[in-house]
Design a protein around this nucleic acid. Sequence first.
DNA 1: GGAGCGACTTAGTAGACTGCTT
DNA 2: AAGCAGTCTACTAAGTCGCTCC
Length: 406
Amino acid sequence: MTDWRQILGRNHVIKKFELCDFTPIYEWHMKEKEKKKNMSTEEKKALKEEKLKQEEKYMWAIVDGVKERMGKLKRRILPSDITINIGKNAPVPECPILGESWKEVKHDNTVTWLAFWNDPINSKEFKYVFLAASSSLKGQSDREKYEKARLLKDYIHGIRAQYTKNFTNKDITMRQIAVATYLIDKLALRSGNEKDDDEADMVGCCTLKIENVALLPPNKIQFDFLGKDSIRYFNTVEVELPVYKAIGQFRSGKKDGQDLFDKLDTSKLNSLMPSLTAKVFCTYNASITLDEMTQREEMNVDLGRAKKGKPPLKDAEGKKKKNLSPEVLERKLLQIDAKMEKLEREKITKEDLKTVALGTSKINYLDPRISVAWCKHHEVLKEKIFNKSLLAKFTWAMDVDPDFRF
DNA sequence: GGAGCGACTTAGTAGACTGCTT
DNA sequence: AAGCAGTCTACTAAGTCGCTCC
């Protein structure tokens, strides 16, 4: 038997409980029990109070700005909460809890969910069990998403020309649509649905408030608002003068708390062109940028190959140690300077990227076929670019033609 | 035509894991 | 072996958006 208390080191893994000796704990526990048994009622009460006194400072929390449902404990979800969706002739999965049964068994092949239940805290909210990202069904819809964004390539110039023209349209709704579309296209803003929770201070494009948008003459706009997940969007952008003027008009005569785009909501924006929603712009802009950059890279590589006869880079570690001449020292100093400059640049890049969720783009906005095609061209293993789960998610993209362009 | 519903995508986070340095 | 920084993965909340119904 091993005394478990003797096992030190954080990497030690207990594999067999039966080899551990827990009798000291057991004995201590029994002794305490015995002690309590022999105590008088007063003594027990005193002990309880002492315990409470110790715990009390951890028993309460002061919460500021409470939301209705905040801090509520979620009860356990039971089979009787759950509706499952299976094939007509598929056997009904056995209910895992004895005496319980599923709320409902459906056979709906027009939807992808396998099961759902209503959140007990907010019964209007649905919770779903969906297929994994690696499933062929999800892969198919992922491919369709990128195909739709690719279609935008043929229309984007027309769309941009259209909304640019409408910056000065006489009709205010048309002007608002034009400016909102411009912001979504240029800044990749979310569309900003209306939320029934009226105290929510988070916004998207259509729900921007007067105080979220400041005019900085002559033609800059400063955005400052809380977006999805309460993440602050703080950005100053130079815009075309008609946009600057239009935003000034939308603001005039309004107070803080009022909508900048008072004639707009997301359904108006989305119904403009069928299935062209804000995220299509995001997908398109992200993927086309990656595509262009990999192409530019291509040209640089070719240029690089043209410059032959370059001496191989020598590493700084010389084997022999000598008294170094001033020239050598000078050169070393320069090398160190260059290295410091490089590190400084890297530091700035890192600082700049700190607020950019690159992982999110990779998962949701960048057509994986661009990256796979690049890998094929440069004989780079795709495993170097995608982790295990992304490889699984993007199975549908792996057989892409090496000359694929977005 | 707008509110609410239902189904789906997008996104951040915690904690585990990995691999390098000391 | 410890310390660490970066990456991976599961989890699920927070969005979007089309549809239905009044």
